[in-house]
Design a protein around this nucleic acid. Structure first.
Lengths: 215, 215
DNA sequence: GTCGAACCGGACCGATCGGTCATATTAGGA
DNA sequence: TCCTAATATGACCGATCGGTCCGGTTCGAC
C-alpha cells in the first residue's frame, strides 16, 4: 500500500513549507470546500504545485491530514465533557461545538457528509467521533433527558443536518444554526409515549464504494 | 435578456427529442446530481451533444426546466393539503412528500440547498414553496400543534436538513429519513415555555451572488 | 568551501467539462 | 416528387482539473 506521505521532512525549508501548506490549505478548504484546486493552494502559499505533491501524495491525502486535526479537536472536546456534572448540558455543549466546526469549515462538512469515505484514517476518525458522541448520549439517556432510542451516531448525523438546514441563511444570518440546534435538541429530548419509526443507526456505513448520495 | 429556450419546437422530431431529453436528464440528475455531464445525458438519450444545446441554451436552463416540474409538484401537493381536516396531519404529510422528493432526487436536493440560486424562475418556485409551507404551518400553529415561532421557511429548510442527516445511511437504509422526519416533527411541536434562540427566517435570501455555502 | 542529497518549481500531460459551429440530414408543405 | 427551412450531429475549442517529471536550487554535513 503506497500513498503515504514522507513521514517527517528532514530539511528546515521542507518542514517550514509543510506547515505553511497545511495552514493555507486548511483556510482555503474551510472557506470554499474541498473543491479548491491544488494549484490555487500552491499559489496562495507562494509555492509551486509540485511542492504540494511532494509533501502530500495526493489531494485526498492533504484533505485527510487537515480533517484529522479537526476530528481530533472535536473528539477531545467531547471526551473532556464526559466528566461534566450535567449530562444534558454536556451533550448540548458537544453539539454546539460540533455544529460550530461544521459551520466554520465547509470542507469538514462535505467530508463527513459523504456516504462513502475512502481514506481509512478518516473513517477511523469518524468512528471515534461516533463513539464519543455515544458516550455523551448514553449519560444523558440514563438520566432520562434524551429519548431512549437516540444513539451517538444519531447525534453525529444530526450535526450535519443542522448545518445543512441553516446553510442558505448563513451568509445573511451567521448565527441562524443556533435556532435549528435548539429545535433539534428539543426533538431528541424525552417525548413520553413516542417512539421513532426507523431503527437507530449503530455505525455509519462508510465502506460502500457505490455512488455518492452525499451533499 | 437572452438565454431563453426556443419556446415550442415546430417539427415532430424536435418535440419528440425535447421530451426524450427531459425524461433522460431528469432520471440522470435524480440518480447522480447536477454534476452529470451534458455529454452523458446526450449519450443516454442516443442524441448528439449539440441537440441538447439546441433545446436548452445552457446546462442551467436544462436543470431549471426539470427542477421547476418538481417544485410545482410539491407546491400542488401542499396546496391540496390546505383543505385537509387535520392541520397537523396535513403538515406531516407535506413534509413527508417533501423529504421523499429530496431523497428520490439528488439534484433537487442540491439546487434548493444552494445559498445562491441564479435562475429567476427557480427562485420564484422556491418562494412559492415557502409560501405554501407557510400556509400549512400557519394552520397547525393556530391549532397550537406547532410552536408559535416556527415558519414555513423553517419547514422548507428542515426538509433539506432531514435529507442530509439521513444521507450517509440511505444506501444501506433507504427509509432511514423517516426516523429523522419524526424527530424533527417532535422538535417543531409545541414545547410550552421554550422559545428558539434565533429569530425565524422570513424568506430565503437567494439573491446573494457570493461564495456558495451550500452542500 | 565543497559536494551530494534533498528539495523546489512550473512546464507539461491526459482527462473532462460546458459550449460552438460548419456540415449533413430530415420533416413536411407545395 | 422536390425543395427548403428546421433540425441533428460530433469534431472542435478553451478552460480547468489532479498529477508527473526533470532541470535548477538550496540546505547542511563534512
Amino acid at each position: 500500500m503506497t500513498g503515504t506521505t514522507p513521514a517527517v521532512p528532514s530539511r528546515s525549508d521542507a518542514t517550514r513549507n509543510r506547515r505553511l501548506l497545511l495552514d493555507v490549505a486548511a483556510k482555503a478548504f474551510a472557506e470554499r470546500g474541498v473543491d479548491v484546486s491544488i494549484g490555487e493552494i500552491a499559489q496562495r502559499a507562494g509555492l509551486g504545485k509540485g511542492t504540494v505533491f511532494r509533501h502530500f501524495s495526493s489531494k485526498e491525502e492533504l484533505v485527510a491530514a487537515i480533517m484529522l486535526r479537526m476530528f481530533d479537536e472535536l473528539v477531545d472536546a467531547g471526551t473532556a465533557l464526559l466528566t461534566a456534572e450535567d449530562p444534558g448540558l454536556a451533550l448540548r455543549e458537544f453539539m454546539t461545538a460540533g455544529v460550530e466546526i461544521y459551520v466554520r469549515d465547509q470542507a469538514f462538512s462535505e467530508v463527513i457528509g459523504r456516504s462513502s469515505v475512502q481514506h481509512p484514517q478518516v473513517r477511523d476518525a469518524i468512528d471515534r467521533l461516533c463513539d464519543t458522541a455515544e458516550a455523551l448520549t448514553a449519560r444523558a439517556r440514563q438520566e432520562g433527558i434524551v429519548r431512549p432510542d437516540v444513539t451517538g451516531t444519531d447525534v453525529v448525523l444530526l450535526l450535519g443536518g443542522i448545518r445543512r438546514t441553516a446553510a442558505p441563511l448563513l451568509i445573511v444570518e451567521p448565527q441562524a444554526w443556533r435556532r435549528y440546534l435548539d429545535l433539534t435538541l428539543d426533538g431528541i429530548t424525552t417525548h413520553p409515549g413516542r417512539s421513532l419509526p426507523h431503527p437507530p443507526p449503530r455505525h455509519l456505513p462508510l465502506t460502500t464504494p457505490a455512488p455518492d448520495h452525499g451533499c
